[in-house]
Structures are given as structure tokens and as C-alpha cells.
């Protein structure tokens, strides 16, 4: 399967959007060669603002620009938005409904040997709890691009969770993003696997492994953590007696928490949350990390077999 890194899509799509929206600016926190916002700088040097290593200020400057009618897209690592700049993100952007787009690069575990300081596995819990904030985690290159087009046309703050390294392209080129939808990537019979972000592609692979064991798992993708069509989620998961969620995020407050909350209220059934347990990450090769935290297709399949067959 073809693989593309979402950060490459971020840079390329910023250029497309820059052509379509003359009022679009990119503000960077000295990481554009990592986030690939440097592609935008190459295309529109006058609309690229290098704000330096000062993320709180970058977020605040963006709020001012947004209230003048600009559309600021921000470029930095996830952790520096949701942790370092959490207060300005909350008070200046979310609370004022500022039209700021947060390009949260390097989310999750696979951050290029940076370790626990840079592995932000708490971001969804933080931004999802902020009113007015739209929270998106694309499955692949196609959805990342579609979400960026949607986010730029949308009036209000949007948090876009991006990843560093290449991941499979799953969706067809003509895919149209609709906020709130829960995508069925593969129908199933025995249980459901629900993912968000690039983890959903790993669940497809896990489902193939499970098929060989005689278990038919349905695979679902929640690209929008907020807003989420709760009714659609409940209906799509209704046929399944048991649900597994998986995400490059803490098992607290992310997709697993969300699915458990919704099912708990409308259709109670067991929900197994696969993710980072209550521990900090570490620097290691990607394959090691995915195996270690139970997120690789093989480890997800093993966990499902253990839960189902005992």
C-alpha cells in the first residue's frame, strides 16, 4: 500500500490553500522544516511569519490576526500547543472563537526518537474538553488534505492532529470529509475495532490477521473527535457485542474515553481501550514503540484474541 507522511500533506495543502485564500497566513514556531510548513514559505514568503520558539505568543498573535479577518494556520509540534500554550489556546482562541487553525504536527508516539518530552499522548483529552474547539485526527493523506480544506472554510478554531512518518493511504482520492461521520472501513460480525488518526489503518491490518483466526472484526474510523455524530457511532456499533478502541493517545480522555462515554449512555456494552496506559513514553524505533504499547496490527490482534478467547 502506498504510504505518505501527513506532514508532507500539511505543507503541500497549505500551498494549495494559500492560492485559494489570500488572507491565509502561516505562523511557525521555528519548526517549519520538520512540520513541512516550509513548503508554504517557499511559495508565499511574504505570508509566512516566523514567530520563533515562543508558542504562547504565537497562539496569541494568531488570535489577534484572526479577529482582523486573517486565517492563521499554525505550525509547531502537538505538545507545544496543548501543553506549553494551553492557556492562550483556551482563553485567546477557544474562548473568543478565533478563526485559528492549529496544525499540530508530530502527534502521538512516533515523533522521531524524541522520547516522552515530545510524545504528546494527552492532547485529545485537553482540546476535546475545550468548548468551540473542533478536533480532527485524519486517517491518511487523503483525509488530511480534505480536513485542511474543510477547516479553512470553517469559521472557528480547529485543532488538526498530524503525524510525522509515512502511513498507508487508505481512502479514495474522491473522498469528501464530513465532520462528525464515523467511517466503516471494513464490515464485520464478531466485534468492532474503532480507531482515530493513522491508527485506524493499523486496525484494518489487525482485522486481516484476525480473519485468518476466524474472527470477523468490523473496522471503524472516527476522524472527528469533536464534533462526533453520537447517534451514528451508536448505530454503527450496535450489531457488535464488544468494542475495542485503539489510539496513539492515553487511554484516559481520548477516543477510548469518548466511545465508552457514548456507549455507556446509549448502548452499554464492554469497551476495551487500547492505548498508552498511565505511563510516560520513551524514545525508541517506531516498530518497537507500536509493539511495546500494543498498537501494532499484530499486538492489537493478539489483544483481541486474548479478550475474546481468554
Amino acid at each position: 500500500m502506498r504510504e505518505v507522511a501527513l506532514r508532507e500533506v500539511f505543507g503541500e495543502t497549505l500551498v494549495e490553500l494559500g492560492e485559494a485564500y489570500p488572507n491565509l497566513l502561516v505562523l511557525d514556531g521555528d519548526l517549519a522544516n520538520s512540520t513541512k510548513a516550509d513548503k508554504f514559505e517557499a511559495a508565499f514568503p511574504d505570508r509566512f511569519l516566523e514567530m520563533g520558539i515562543a508558542e504562547q505568543n504565537m497562539v496569541g498573535v494568531a488570535a489577534g490576526l484572526a479577529h482582523l479577518g486573517f486565517i492563521p494556520w499554525l505550525s509547531s509540534f502537538t505538545v507545544f500547543f496543548t501543553h506549553r500554550a494551553a492557556d492562550p489556546l483556551r482563553m485567546l482562541v477557544a474562548q473568543t472563537k478565533a478563526n485559528v487553525k492549529i496544525g499540530a504536527a508530530y502527534s502521538g508516539l512516533l515523533t522521531g526518537y524524541t522520547g516522552k518530552t515530545h510524545q504528546d499522548v494527552e492532547d485529545l483529552a485537553i482540546v476535546r474538553a475545550m468548548p468551540e474547539m473542533v478536533v480532527l485526527a485524519p486517517l491518511d493523506a487523503v483525509e488530511a488534505r480534505a480536513m485542511m480544506h474543510w477547516a479553512t472554510a470553517h469559521e472557528g478554531p480547529v485543532y488538526l492532529r498530524l503525524t510525522r512518518d509515512p502511513s498507508p493511504v487508505v481512502l479514495p482520492e474522491d473522498y469528501r470529509f464530513e465532520p462528525g461521520r464515523v467511517l466503516e472501513l471494513k464490515p464485520g460480525r464478531d466485534l468492532a475495532l474503532v480507531g482515530t488518526g493513522v491508527q485506524s489503518a493499523r486496525l484494518l491490518e489487525a482485522a486481516r490477521l484476525l480473519s485468518a483466526e476466524g474472527i470477523e472484526a468490523g473496522v471503524y474510523h472516527a476522524g472527528a473527535i469533536k464534533p462526533l455524530d453520537e447517534e451514528e457511532l451508536v448505530n454503527k456499533l450496535r450489531p457488535y457485542p464488544k468494542v475495542f478502541t485503539a489510539e496513539e493517545h492515553s487511554i484516559y480522555g481520548g477516543l477510548g474515553g469518548l466511545v465508552a462515554e457514548v456507549l455507556g449512555a446509549h448502548d452499554p456494552k464492554p469497551v476495551v481501550r487500547i492505548g498508552i496506559p498511565d505511563v510516560w513514553g520513551e524514545s525508541a524505533p517506531n516498530d518497537w514503540l507500536l509493539d511495546h504499547y500494543g498498537l501494532s496490527p499484530r499486538r492489537v490482534a493478539e489483544r483481541v484474541l486474548k479478550e475474546v478467547k481468554g
Binding site: 479577529h67 492562550p88 474562548q95
Partner: peptide, 26 residues
């Protein structure tokens, strides 16, 4: 978001100058 005439929300200290930079830059 409630009172027209206010150009920014504030309360958590130390944050007002940054959106001011945004306005001036804009």
C-alpha cells in the same frame, strides 16, 4: 464574545500583549 466594543477577552494574566501584536501586525 458578549460585549461589543471589547477587542479581546482577558483575565488570565500576561496574555494581552500577544493579540495586540497580532492586531498591529495585521
Amino acid at each position: 464574545t458578549r460585549l461589543p466594543g471589547l477587542d479581546m477577552s482577558s483575565g488570565s494574566l500576561g496574555q494581552g500583549l500577544s493579540p495586540g501584536v497580532g492586531y498591529a501586525l495585521g
